[in-house]
Design a protein around this nucleic acid. Structure first.
Lengths: 199, 199
DNA sequence: ATTATCTATAGATCTATAGATAATGC
DNA sequence: ATTATCTATAGATCTATAGATAATGC
């Protein structure tokens, strides 16, 4: 039951955020009474922190396995976009959830620093080196790692953030949704490669 | 006082969203008591709808004046990005606010349809025509209006959505923030033009 | 005995309204 | 008279805890 509560809490928090979910909601969905949530996790904040940490370290693992050093630079970039996209397809609520909680919940930055920052630097270093080589040898246009990563993340994430808006405005069904996402993935790859490729 | 309440409500809702603000908060910041908020606007939902409609039509005006038909295609695209960026710099909370409320508040889609949809089609048509001419004459690579607009909006909006995250992780000050935003604006222009320009 | 689960409830909000009082417009 | 503002309060949550009861492990 403890694990069930945690799992239910994770689903609900991801979908509706910290303030959108009450411990009563969690208990109802887990099929126990509300006091039990507090028995296992003391406070709602505490439960949320555990969930958040969990979500973040899962995310970390998925992201940082994508950059394997076998392939060509172009293939690596394409691979990053592919992995990033499929991760987002599996967790469509994740971007909104993270953005929201980070801007609302001030003391969450500690968790982010703890779980995330240590892992991001090696990957950036590796990407940095590859990028410098490519630029030096004239295959890639001048660009900073910072801008390259933000370009990629912007183009990948945004469709998932905008998805509820588009659903409302355009009113498409699930099949069309998948097509739109697939189309955006290919467009993202095209845009990034055209930005990079020196001709 | 009625206008003051409305203005305070707008600021607070934009910053913290519908559920993050109580009528007590609004009254406190407006310097009156909480009953007065209900006297003028009956319910919190009603007040919110008025604010939302207001925000949306202001946004609409700002967005749809950007596409004037004088300049060259390349200049028009650059102009769109410039106007979009400066609008966002003036209203940094806007993207998050819109995304959030649209996904939380189901009956808000009506307001969006009412205020927004009617205005977007003429602009898209105009852009569509220009784009087709450019493509037909071999100056621009094949791309749909849908993808072009999403590319632009992704690259422009994302930095503002990610801003709280970055502030937390990178911990920069206001001056550095402005520099980052300026850098991203130039990068966005570069990316879009490289995507479009047939060589 | 200890751990898991429940019932009941205190105390904090928060929205919305009723009814009193003050301010304003004719 | 009408409109603007206030005080007070009902009724709905929601979090957290105390204390009772059921289930489990030795």
């Amino acid at each position: 039951m403890e694990r069930l509560i945690l799992s239910v809490a994770k689903d609900l928090f991801l979908e509706k955020g910290f303030s959108g979910v009450s411990t009563t909601d969690i208990a109802a969905k887990a099929g126990c009474n509300q006091a039990l949530v507090h028995y296992y996790f003391r406070t709602k904040s505490n439960l949320f922190k555990i969930v958040f940490k969990d979500v973040l370290s899962q995310l970390k693992e998925k992201i940082f396995t994508s950059y394997n050093s076998k392939a060509s630079f172009e293939e690596k970039i394409t691979e990053i976009i592919d992995v990033h996209f499929s991760m987002l397809q599996e967790n469509p609520y994740l971007p909104m959830f993270l953005m929201n909680e980070i801007s609302n919940n001030k003391d969450i930055s500690l968790i982010i620093q703890e779980v995330f920052l240590s892992s991001i630097y090696p990957v950036m270093d590796s990407l940095q080196k590859d990028l410098q080589t490519e630029i030096a040898e004239g295959r890639v246009r001048e660009i900073s790692v910072f801008n390259l990563l933000l370009d990629i993340v912007s183009l990948n994430l945004f469709i998932f953030i905008a998805e509820p808006v588009m659903k409302n405005i355009l009113g498409y069904n699930e099949k069309e949704r998948q097509e739109v996402i697939e189309e955006r993935k290919n467009e993202a790859k095209k845009v990034i490669l055209l930005r990079l490729k020196a001709n």
